[in-house]
Structures are given as C-alpha cells and as structure tokens.
Design a protein around this nucleic acid. Structure first.
Lengths: 197, 197
DNA sequence: ATTATTTGCTAACACCCGTTAGTATATTAT
DNA sequence: ATAATATACTAACGGGTGTTAGCAAATAAT
C-alpha cells in the first residue's frame, strides 16, 4: 500500500492536480479517465477521492490557478509607469514565461476550459473577457500616444494571445536555454512585424 | 420515418459530416456523442451507421478535407511568381477565408486531430509538418531576398498560423461583410507589426 | 406491379465512465 | 502503547458510450 509521495511544501492534492494537468494536456479532459490519472499517480482510482471532490474540481484548480496568475501580473503591469509598447512587451514576455514554466496548466486552461461546469464556467469566461479588455485598453493607450499603429485593439489582443498560446512545439523540441532567444524572436515579429522596412 | 434531407449535389453522408463538424466544434470530439449527433441530424443513432463506418471516420473526413484544401492552395501559391511577402499574404488571406467559410471544419481539424486513430493520425501529422515546412521555406526565401526580416522562419509560421486559427470570436460576433476589414487588420499587424515607425 | 435497394427503427450488447460504500492499513497525536 | 486520523484498497453502482443485429418502411429499378 504505497502512499503518494510528496515533496516538501506540497500536499498530495497538489501532486494529483499536477499529474492531472499533464494528462489533460496529453489526452484532453474528456478523454482522460480517472483510472488513467490514478495509474499516473501510482494509486487506485478510488483512492484519489480521499484528496479531491471530483474530476471537474481538478479542472477548476488548473484553470483558476492560471487565471489568477495572469490577473495578478496584469495588476502589476497596469500600475507600472512604462510606455504602452513596454507594457505590451512585459505581458508578452510573461505569457511566454508561463508557457515555458507552467506549460501543462496553461495549455489545459487555454484549451479545455469549455468543460468547466457552471458557475465556474461563466466565472472563468468573465475573467478571460476582463483580461482581454484590460490588454486592449493598454494597446488603445498606445494608439492614442502614437506609439502604436491605428489598428483594432481587440483583434490585436487575440492575435498576440493565440500566437503565444499556440507555440506547442518548441517546448518539447527546444531546451529552455534558447527560450529567451525565441522570446526575442517572437517579440520582434509581433511588435515589429515581418516586413523589412 | 423521416429521411435525412439532402440538398442537390450532396450525399446524406456529407450532411452527417457537416453536422458532426458543428457538434465536434461545440463540445469537442470526445464529449460529443453519436446520440447527440443523431438528434442534430434528426434521426436515431443507429441509423447513422447506414451512411458511415464509425465515429472516427467522421473525424477523418473533416480533418483530411481541410488538410487537402490547404495543400492544394500551397501548390498553387508555390508555383506562382509573386514575391515572398505576397505569397505570405496570399496564404494568410486563404487561411482567414477558410476560417470564415468553413469555420467548423477548420476549427475541428485544428483542435481535435489528436483523437484520430493511427494510421490516419501519423498521416495527418506528416501532412501538417510538410505544410509548415513549405510555408517556412517561403519565408526563408523572403529573408534571402531581403524582403523579410532575419527571423526564425519556423517560429514565424507557428505565430502566423495560430494567430489566425485563434480567431474564434469574430466569426460569431461579426458579419461576413467586415471580414475583409478584419483581414486587412490582421495582415497589417502580422506583416507590419504593432509599432509605429 | 414486383423486386431490389436504401434508409430508418427498436432493442440490445459489451464496455468504460465517475463515483461511493465499506474496510484495512499506515501514520500521527496523546 | 493506545487512540485518532489519514490514506489506501476492493467491490460495486448506475449511467453513458459506440456499435451491431434484425426487422420495417420507403424509395428506386425492373
């Protein structure tokens, strides 16, 4: 009867949530079964329920964990006194950093939130909408200050977020060493564009 | 005993595939049941099997339908004699057009291909990899010709594709009338960048 | 009109799912 | 050492899944 091994400063529940994130990323929330998860944790399926309430709770934990980190960063960036372009760059760098260091959770939060149950679902959607609005407001500031081109700000936000969120491949194929390399690359493309002027 | 209604030039199977695409987009492949699909088609679940072999076959049809259209367009663009930037713009416009006119299929092909079964899965992945390689080659041509900035071409491709593929919202919220408006907006941002020089 | 084919139906199958009840064992507190 | 708590196990539940068999009705072909 082998217990779930825990590192110090982490509960057994946190171990389960972490393994769940990896599994949900690999198979998708619906396709990943509690028996799959149990096997990956090294325990029988029923035993998981000593630590968690339900499968959906795992998705809550993952999605709102990520959402909260992004919200806090947005607070920080907004209250700073940088230019709009600098703020955009700060946010892009944060998104990429999150993608590198919390890949599974961010990925799942991005792609699997549809399977949240109400009231969590609408709560999550609201937070998402808020975040995008605040991001767009920064861009609109930049347009007003003539730092940024006259473009549709909400569209720009969607482009930025999805461009970053879509980078699945290089997490696996590339080492973290040249992550900063790729970050610069992305910012060059997204802020500066493709065209050589 | 009401039959599945068909428009002229379309088989009953095509009707089912089309409804399946809408359902898979809304709920995800795994979460969408054959009984859900049957209801949306207006028939009992078992009746579907007079027209299709399996649930997975529906996913095959959707994914490879989309993949083939993209491959043909790539053939066309490659063999043209435009500049690299123009070729990139052609491809971006095609992607957006596909997103507008075949939204459900493109979305499902993008997000649900993981649930394909081998050998279709690896086949699909190979096609996908090929497409991206060919896209990257165009960008590298542009870099050599000094049309395009010195950037990492594969990264640029991922950014472009995901930026476009991520635009879920405006299909619902916006009419097709200003789709061309948004297309221009996207090309401005992606080709020209955010920054006002 | 008769036959053949297509398409639908009902019923059921074997299987996988998330979850609970009840119990045994390991760890922690007294 | 003893009691209390936390954690794991086995067994099983009700329900949903994709799919098949067998049959009825509608359409198409002769």
């Amino acid at each position: 009867m082998a217990r779930i091994k825990i590192e110090k400063n982490s509960s057994r529940k946190e171990v389960i949530v972490s393994k769940a994130a990896a599994l949900f990323r690999e198979k998708g929330f619906k396709a990943a079964s509690m028996r799959d998860l149990a096997e990956s944790v090294g325990v029988e399926a029923a035993s998981l329920y000593n630590h968690i309430k339900s499968k959906t709770e795992l998705l809550h934990e993952i999605c709102f964990g990520v959402a909260n980190r992004f919200m806090h960063k947005m607070d920080e960036v907004e209250s700073g006194s940088n230019s709009a372009i600098e703020k955009v760059e700060q946010l892009i760098r944060f998104h990429i950093d999150e993608m590198v260091n919390h890949y599974e959770e961010v990925y799942v939060s991005d792609r699997e939130w549809k399977h949240l149950a109400d009231p969590y679902l609408s709560n999550f959607q609201t937070q998402r909408r808020m975040y995008r609005k605040r991001f767009a407001a920064i861009i609109e500031d930049g347009i007003r200050n003539k730092e940024i081109k006259k473009i549709d700000a909400p569209t720009a936000v969607l482009i930025l977020l999805h461009a970053i969120g879509g980078i699945e491949s290089w997490h696996r194929s590339t080492q973290k060493i040249n992550a900063s390399n790729l970050t610069d690359n992305m910012i060059t493309i997204l802020v500066g564009g493709l065209e050589l002027k």
